[in-house]
Amino acid sequence: MASSSLHGLSKSHAMTGYRIGFLMGHQRLIEQAVKVSAFNILCASVPSQHGAIAALTECRDTPKDMNKSYIERRDYVYNRLVNMGVDVQKPEGAFYIFPSIKKYGMTSEQFATRLMAEGGVGVVPGSAFSQLGEGYLRITYAYAMETLELAMDRMEAFIKSL
């Protein structure tokens, strides 16, 4: 059987809101995938389809450029968190970082809520990803560097106020 490929354009072409991807594979695999997805999704929007066509035909270097940018952003956010004294592991994929907030004596939901209310920074509480995520936050670094700088400045001020 020939190999299959499932791919989305969210990361490779910075099209996170478009929600579009594709599956290539043997006909039997495609038939089964269509059965699973038919009642979950109807169709990608027309603008998303046009964006995907442009991404795949006119932006072949974008994945390399985006990968470099994500690495720079990841390293920036990681280094800022380390310098704040936050326990964190450097991620090796995606565009999220999952720092520990256990030492601050709050649940992840409490921390995230206060960070939003007092610091103006939105993060996802780790508890949203099961009980194993409790004590952590999910922070995305898919934003422009200027936005990340502002968010990290605000987060640092919030942590210093604790």
Rank of each mutant, 00 (worst) to 15 (best):
Y143R: 07
E146R: 06
A112S: 15
V121D: 02
A142D: 13
P91G: 08
R114Q: 14
A142M: 09
G122R: 10
R114D: 03
Y104R: 07
E156V: 05
F98L: 09
R114N: 03
V121Q: 11
R154M: 08
Q110L: 04
M106K: 14
F98R: 10
T140V: 06
G135I: 01
V121G: 09
M116K: 15
A157D: 14
A157K: 14
A157N: 13
R114Y: 00
Q89T: 11
F129R: 01
G126V: 00
G105W: 11
I101R: 00
D153V: 02
P91S: 10
M155L: 13
Q131S: 15
G126I: 06
P99Y: 00
Q89V: 14
V88W: 15
G122I: 07
G122A: 14
L137N: 06
M116C: 08
K103Q: 14
V86H: 02
A142E: 03
V124E: 06
T147D: 13
I139D: 03
L148R: 03
F111N: 10
T107W: 05
L137T: 08
P99F: 11
Y143N: 04
E149N: 08
S100F: 02
E118V: 01
A151V: 02
G85Y: 01
G122H: 10
E118Q: 15
E149Y: 05
V123D: 06
E92C: 04
I101S: 09
V124R: 11
M84A: 02
A157H: 04
G126C: 05
Q110C: 08
E109A: 10
V88I: 12
A144T: 01
Y136K: 14
T113H: 12
P99L: 11
R114I: 00
Y141T: 07
Y96D: 06
A144C: 05
A94T: 13
V121W: 04
Y143M: 02
V88L: 12
A142G: 15
D153C: 12
A142K: 02
M152A: 04
A151M: 13
T140A: 10
E92Y: 09
M152P: 02
Y96T: 10
P91Q: 08
Y104M: 04
A144P: 05
G105L: 00
L150C: 10
Y136P: 04
Y136A: 06
G122P: 06
E156M: 12
T113S: 14
T113W: 03
S127E: 09
T147Q: 11
Q131V: 14
G93M: 14
Y143Q: 03
L132D: 13
R138A: 00
V88G: 07
M152I: 02
T140W: 01
T147W: 01
R154Q: 15
R154C: 15
Y143S: 08
A144L: 02
S108C: 12
R138P: 04
T147N: 13
G85F: 05
A157Q: 12
A117P: 00
G126R: 01
T113E: 13
G85N: 05
P91R: 09
S127W: 07
M116L: 15
P125F: 13
G126H: 03
K90P: 06
